[in-house]
Amino acid sequence: MKTQEELTEIVRDHFSDMGEIATLYVQVYESSLESLVGGVIFEDGRHYTFVYENEDLVYE
């Protein structure tokens, strides 16, 4: 089982391919040991929310 830090790094690596990240945040109250819920804001102003669970990243 991966730690929350490892899950965060996986998500950061994925989004870094889309541009320069200004902020990546995790909603700790919605996340667990198996899933990571949060959002990412890019330097150009784009903002996505995401759920990473079971090695699957869903964002909008």
Rank of each mutant, 00 (worst) to 15 (best):
L24P: 00
E53G: 09
Y59A: 05
V37F: 07
Y59E: 03
V28E: 09
V37T: 14
V51W: 13
R46P: 03
Y29K: 06
I41V: 10
T23R: 11
H14F: 15
T49V: 08
V37S: 09
Y25V: 04
F42N: 00
D56K: 15
I41R: 05
L36Y: 04
N54C: 08
Y48C: 03
E43S: 15
T49H: 08
V58D: 07
E53H: 13
H47E: 07
V51R: 15
E53S: 15
S32Q: 11
V40M: 02
F15N: 01
V28N: 10
S16Y: 07
L24I: 11
T8L: 12
E6R: 04
R46H: 06
T3I: 05
F15W: 03
V51H: 12
G38R: 00
Y48P: 00
V51Y: 10
Y48M: 06
D13G: 14
E34S: 14
D17R: 15
E30A: 10
Q27L: 15
E53K: 15
N54Q: 09
V51S: 10
K2R: 11
Y29M: 06
H47N: 05
Q27V: 14
L33K: 15
S31H: 12
L24S: 01
M1S: 13
R12Y: 10
G45T: 04
V40W: 01
L7E: 01
D13F: 15
E55N: 14
E30H: 13
Q4D: 04
F50Y: 06
I10H: 07
E30Y: 07
A22M: 10
H14M: 15
V40H: 00
E55A: 12
V11H: 01
E34D: 08
E6C: 07
L33C: 09
V37M: 13
E5M: 09
H14A: 13
G38F: 03
D44M: 02
G19Q: 02
D44L: 02
V51F: 09
D56P: 02
K2Y: 06
H47W: 11
L57H: 02
I41N: 03
L36D: 00
R46Q: 06
Y29Q: 06
M18C: 08
Y48L: 07
E60S: 15
E53M: 14
M1G: 11
R12F: 09
V51A: 08
D44G: 04
F15R: 01
L33H: 14
H14R: 13
E43H: 14
R46V: 05
Y29D: 05
S35A: 07
G38N: 00
G39W: 15
G19C: 03
D56L: 15
E6N: 07
Q4K: 13
L57T: 04
Q4M: 14
I10C: 06
E20P: 10
E55S: 11
M18I: 08
F50P: 00
D56H: 15
F42R: 00
G38A: 01
V37K: 15
L7K: 04
V28I: 13
E30V: 14
G38Y: 03
D56N: 15
D44N: 06
L57P: 02
E43C: 12
E30W: 07
K2D: 04
I41K: 06
S31D: 08
Y29L: 06
D17V: 14
Y52C: 04
H14D: 03
G19F: 03
F50K: 00
R46F: 03
Y29V: 06
G45R: 04
T49M: 08
V58L: 13
L36A: 04
R12L: 09
R46C: 07
Q4C: 08
V28G: 08
A22K: 14
S31K: 11
Y25A: 03
F42V: 00
T49F: 08
E34W: 09
T3K: 06
Q4A: 08
L36C: 04
V51C: 10
M18A: 04
M18D: 03
E5K: 09
E9D: 11
D44I: 02
E55T: 10
E30M: 12
L24R: 00
D17L: 14
Y52T: 02
D13C: 12
V58K: 15
E34L: 11
E34Q: 14
V28P: 06
I41M: 09
S35F: 12
F42P: 00
Q27H: 14
T23E: 08
G38Q: 01
Q4T: 06
H47Y: 07
A22S: 11
N54S: 09
R12Q: 05
A22V: 13
V51D: 03
T23F: 11
Y48W: 08
I41T: 06
E43A: 15
G39L: 11
A22T: 10
E30P: 05
T3E: 04
E30D: 14
Q4F: 10
V28Q: 13
G38K: 00
M1C: 09
Q4W: 08
T49W: 07
G39V: 12
V26W: 06
V40G: 00
L36R: 01
F15M: 07
E6G: 05
E20D: 11
G45D: 03
S32N: 11
V58I: 12
T49Q: 06
H14E: 05
V58A: 09
T3P: 05
T3Q: 05
M1N: 12
G19E: 02
E9A: 13
G39Y: 13
M18P: 01
E55H: 12
N54T: 05
S35R: 15
E53C: 11
T3V: 05
M18Q: 06
E9V: 09
V11Q: 00
R12D: 02
L7W: 04
D56G: 14
E30T: 14
G19W: 03
V51P: 00
V40F: 02
Y25D: 03
I41L: 08
S16G: 08
S32I: 11
N54Y: 08
S32C: 09
A22H: 10
Y48Q: 01
G45K: 04
V40Y: 01
E60F: 13
V40Q: 00
Y52I: 07
S35L: 14
L36S: 02
F15C: 03
E9P: 02
Q4L: 13
Y29A: 06
E5G: 08
G45M: 04
Y25P: 00
L7C: 04
Y52Q: 02
V40S: 00
S35D: 03
Y52G: 00
G45E: 04
R12G: 04
R46N: 05
Y25Q: 04
N54F: 10
I21E: 01
V58W: 13
R46E: 04
V51Q: 07
G45Q: 04
I10P: 03
V26C: 05
E5V: 09
E9Y: 09
G19K: 02
V40D: 00
Y25M: 04
L33Y: 11
D13L: 14
F50E: 00
L33S: 12
V58G: 05
I21P: 02
Y59T: 05
Y52K: 02
I41G: 03
A22R: 15
L57Q: 01
E34T: 11
G39H: 11
R12N: 05
E34P: 14
V26H: 03
S35N: 07
M18H: 08
V28H: 13
K2L: 09
V26I: 14
V26R: 02
V11G: 01
L57Y: 04
Q27E: 07
Y25H: 04
H14S: 08
M1D: 07
V28T: 15
Q27M: 14
M1W: 12
L36M: 09
H47F: 07
N54E: 06
E20T: 14
M1Y: 14
T23D: 07
S35I: 13
L24M: 09
T49A: 07
L24Y: 04
E43W: 13
F50H: 00
Y25E: 04
S35K: 15
S16A: 12
T8N: 05
R46G: 04
V40T: 03
L24C: 04
D17I: 15
F50S: 00
G39Q: 08
Y25S: 04
D17C: 14
L57S: 02
Q27R: 12
T8R: 09
E60T: 15
F42G: 00
D44R: 02
E60K: 15
M1Q: 13
S16Q: 10
I21Q: 01
M1H: 12
G45Y: 03
S32A: 12
E34V: 11
D13A: 15
S31A: 14
D17T: 15
E20R: 14
E34A: 12
V58F: 14
V51G: 03
S16E: 08
R46W: 04
V26E: 01
L57E: 01
E43I: 14
G38C: 03
M1P: 11
V37D: 03
E60R: 15
F42I: 02
V37L: 08
L24G: 00
V26Q: 02
Q4I: 13
D17S: 14
Y29G: 06
